[in-house]
Simulated scan of single mutants.
Amino acid sequence: MRPGTLETAQRPFVLIWELTQACGLACNHCRADAKPQRHPDELSTAEGKALLKDAAEFGDGQLVVLSGGDPLVRDDVEELIASGDDLGLRMTITPSGTGSLTAGRIEAMADAGLKRMAVSLDGASAETHDAFRGEEGSFAETIRAVEDARAAGLPVQVNTTVCRQTVDELPAIRELLTDLGAVMWSVFFLVPVGRGRILEPITPERADVVMAWLAEVSETEPFGVKTTEAPQYRRVVMQRQGETAAGGEKGAAPDPGVKRRTGIVAGDGFAFVSHTGEVFPSGFLPESAGNVRDRPVTDSYRNSALFQSLRDRDRLSGKCGACPYRHVCGGSRSRAFAHTGDPLASDPLCPFVPEGYDGPLPWDDADGGARGVSSGG
């Protein structure tokens, strides 16, 4: 058994806290299916500070992402950032591109100890981005917010959703990121949850092509590149470099030359706390391992049966379970859950078929799937 690395068994690389699901936008891809009004059972400021104190038990420098909805709907964000910063947490935020993200609010968050701000760009122009976000003026607000963040000395990350509606925009978004001075491009491959169920994913074969292109981008641009809900990016990078899983053996350990962080998956290096305190492996995998009101987030992450199963790559089923890259990839557990109800099933976005595997293929039952490519193809 290989229940994750020692490091990921004890702490996530990324802990997201969804402050609220309230938001003034109606984005087509919204995981939270956000609504204008706040939920009456959201974690209070005091409960949020208790959560941050528990999160600090993961270890010094734990990364915490404040998300939503639109987290700036709440008026205690700066107080929470300062509290987390005092505890030694690396506090970051993903606000919505709305009028709530003023220059004054950005400066106040930076003064409170915010380390990075992430904004979403799903199109390289007002026409394409605003259409996807469902709000005229969202693109202009987002670009203005990036400029305000840079003026406040705050590094900016850009998040982009990849689906059939946005994939052709990626080259232009790449150019825009360079102009904006972004430090990181986080490219999210659609998981059909929330309002995202109405969107069309790209085919598995095209996903591999996009990931190979992203690997090239990472080598030539000044900003970093990471993928979300697409751990097969590690396999694509290794194959592009002419590498295999160490020794080329089934279930082999990660090649030491490939950074571990890029292979985190839901529950293994990643955890999510909902606006009402439920602890999920990911915001896209809404299975609860406990609530922070009655169980510390550290305990849910380290000891719950759900999280432990997700850290054991030998428990994966189907072609993911037979894949020689499973310990460096593992597939999107969130996408597997969304399509099958089983977080240990195969990820239907990955076209790779292990050599000699003759079991069921995940796209046989998935809409719009593509035939896979074998390890020799």
Rank of each mutant, 00 (worst) to 15 (best):
T5F: 13
R11H: 13
I16K: 09
I16P: 00
W17R: 13
T20D: 05
Q21M: 04
L25P: 07
N28Y: 08
D33S: 11
P36S: 10
P36E: 08
P40S: 09
D41F: 00
G61I: 15
G61T: 14
L63E: 09
S67D: 11
G69D: 09
D70H: 05
V73F: 12
L89C: 05
M91C: 10
T92W: 13
T102F: 03
A103V: 01
A110R: 14
D111S: 12
M117G: 03
V119A: 07
S120N: 12
S120H: 01
E127H: 11
T128C: 02
G134M: 00
G137Y: 12
S138P: 00
A140D: 15
E141W: 14
E141L: 15
E141G: 04
A149G: 15
A149Y: 13
G153F: 05
V167Y: 03
D168W: 05
L170S: 05
W185M: 01
S186K: 09
V193H: 03
G196L: 03
E200T: 13
R206K: 12
D208C: 07
W213S: 06
E216F: 02
E221S: 02
K226T: 10
T228Q: 11
E243Q: 15
A245W: 00
G248D: 08
A252H: 04
A252Y: 01
A253I: 15
I264P: 03
G267T: 06
G269H: 04
G269P: 09
V273I: 12
G277F: 02
F284N: 11
S288Q: 07
D299S: 13
S300G: 07
N303E: 15
N303Q: 14
L306P: 04
S309K: 14
D312V: 01
G318W: 03
G321A: 05
A322S: 04
C323K: 03
C329T: 08
T340G: 14
G341M: 06
D342S: 10
C350I: 11
F352A: 00
V353Q: 01
D364R: 02
D367N: 08
G377R: 14
